[in-house]
């Protein structure tokens, strides 16, 4: 911007250039916003991610089911006495991601484990009832989770996540 006449007041000229440049920057930023925001989930997707209700009555002890919520598989396991026992008795200090079993189930509903079935390593789906810990085994890179969904062995850094959920009655939960 060196060509403007030298007869001009330098300060006034500079102010004009700065103001124009600033306005252009504001305009550009405001234009970019919708172009990026459109990538977020749309209203229909968000609405479809509303809470779901699951009836637990048909799940026998030792069985588990997989339901989908927000496109994620949720494991609901009806744990056996043995599994609960194992989950509660393990020494926390021996866990890579220490968390007591009581923090992973709802009080009074010890037999129900509800976890998001996505391996915390790189997102594969662990297989239930496999591995050395009476819990889950991820076939991708060999992570093993116990009967509380906690990581015990392998490359995964954290326990299987527990989704937000609540018991509506003894045999009905709402996820989300």
């Amino acid at each position: 911007m060196t060509t403007a006449s030298s007869a001009d007041h330098p300060t006034r000229r500079d102010f004009l250039f700065v103001a124009t440049g600033a306005a252009a920057a504001v305009g550009a930023a405001a234009t970019v916003w919708p172009l990026v925001a459109q990538m977020n989930p749309d209203a229909a997707t968000i609405a479809a991610g509303a809470p779901i209700q699951v009836d637990l009555a048909p799940i026998a002890e030792g069985q588990d089911i997989k339901v989908f919520w927000r496109g994620k598989p949720i494991y609901i396991s009806h744990r056996t006495k043995k599994q609960i026992q194992e989950a509660q008795s393990v020494a926390l200090s021996s866990l890579p991601d220490p968390q007591p079993d009581s923090a992973r189930v709802k009080a009074g509903h010890d037999q129900w484990l509800v976890v998001i079935g996505i391996c915390t390593h790189l997102g594969c789906i662990p297989i239930a009832h496999e591995g050395n810990y009476d819990g889950f085994f991820c076939p991708c890179h060999g992570s093993q989770y116990d009967s509380s969904g906690r990581i015990r062995q392998g490359p995964a850094p954290a326990n299987l996540a527990v989704p937000p959920y609540a018991f509506l009655s003894d045999t009905k939960i709402q996820i989300g």
Binding site: T3, A4, A19, T20, A23, G27
Partner: peptide
Amino acid sequence: IFALLMYFTKRKVWAGA
């Protein structure tokens, strides 16, 4: 507002030309 700013900026730039 932006068009007005552009107009005056343009006038300044072209003043010498």
